[in-house]
Amino acid sequence: MTQIFDEDIRAEFSRNYPEIPHRLRHNLRDHPLLTLEALAKLGESLPAASIEYNKGDLPTGVDPNSDIANGLSIGDTIRHVDTCRSWAVLKNIEQVPEYRALLLDLLGELKPFIEAKTGAMLMPQGFIFVSSPEAVTPYHFDPEHNILLQLKGSKTMTQFPAGDPVYAPDETHEGYHTGGHRNLVWRDELAKGATDWSLQPGVAVFVPVMAPHHVKVGPEPSISLSITWRSDWSYAEADARAFNSILRKSGMHPRAPGRYPAQNTAKAYAWRVIRKLKGTG
């Protein structure tokens, strides 16, 4: 496969990873696995737990309990994405051998720079987003290190500082890491802290772990590929958040885990012991 990230882009990634969001150029164009028909067939082949799709004409903030179904099948949603006013994501594409190979090829170009900073590249996963014109992905965060590559159409990712409780309160982090939803509560006053990343085909953006963001698609249908991975650091941060939820329920006011390069070892270990005693880990 043609090299997707040029040498200067890999150097830029190395300078900024893992905490500084930045734009990257990429050379992933017109791949046969990433056409609308190929993606429709992929969506139809994946288990139900690996697909999510709904109306795309949504506000920035959405109640996780609201009904946002679009009334179509995943295949029809993707095939008619230009008119159905919807948003779809195909999760864990690495379940399919051809897509796993594509994902590992892409991450393989960055792996030496990743592992030099955060250790072993763990849990490589891929997510493909297919969106109608003007579709909105509501305000949320994700636990992975993430690069979002724009393939077709355009979108704007509006991103906020990771780890800042103004944009995602500690209690929300703790709830997410103990089984809660990833969607965040939006308030218009948060907009002053935003950085907008404009994405067109051939452009990507790096998203640090748990950096809040929302996305708005441009005037044409959009296809994006998210390549993600975890690290020992990201798992320790997540487990420390979960342990803090126990402390908070006990009436304490725990300090938030440190961002990279803090290791958060003690709280992470304590949570893993509790989980093991409960038989859930």
Rank of each mutant, 00 (worst) to 15 (best):
7 E>H: 15
16 N>Y: 11
19 E>Y: 07
24 L>N: 03
25 R>V: 08
30 D>I: 05
31 H>C: 10
33 L>M: 11
35 T>M: 06
37 E>G: 08
37 E>F: 04
38 A>S: 15
40 A>R: 14
43 G>I: 06
43 G>F: 09
44 E>M: 13
45 S>C: 06
45 S>I: 10
47 P>A: 08
48 A>G: 11
48 A>W: 02
50 S>V: 00
51 I>G: 08
57 D>L: 15
62 V>A: 04
64 P>Y: 02
72 L>K: 06
84 C>R: 07
85 R>H: 15
92 N>A: 04
96 V>C: 08
96 V>Y: 04
100 R>K: 15
101 A>K: 13
102 L>R: 07
104 L>F: 11
105 D>A: 13
108 G>P: 01
111 K>T: 10
113 F>A: 07
115 E>D: 05
119 G>M: 07
120 A>G: 10
120 A>Y: 14
127 F>K: 01
128 I>Q: 02
130 V>G: 02
131 S>N: 12
131 S>I: 00
131 S>G: 11
133 P>V: 03
137 T>S: 05
144 E>A: 15
149 L>I: 02
154 S>W: 12
157 M>I: 12
160 F>S: 05
168 A>W: 00
169 P>L: 03
172 T>S: 07
173 H>G: 15
175 G>Q: 13
193 G>F: 14
196 D>L: 12
201 P>M: 05
209 V>R: 06
209 V>H: 04
212 P>C: 02
214 H>S: 02
220 E>W: 10
221 P>K: 04
221 P>F: 01
222 S>P: 08
224 S>A: 14
227 I>C: 03
228 T>C: 13
236 A>R: 15
238 A>W: 05
239 D>H: 14
240 A>S: 12
248 R>C: 03
252 M>E: 07
253 H>Q: 09
255 R>V: 07
256 A>L: 08
261 P>I: 12
265 T>P: 02
268 A>P: 09
269 Y>G: 00
280 T>F: 06
281 G>E: 13
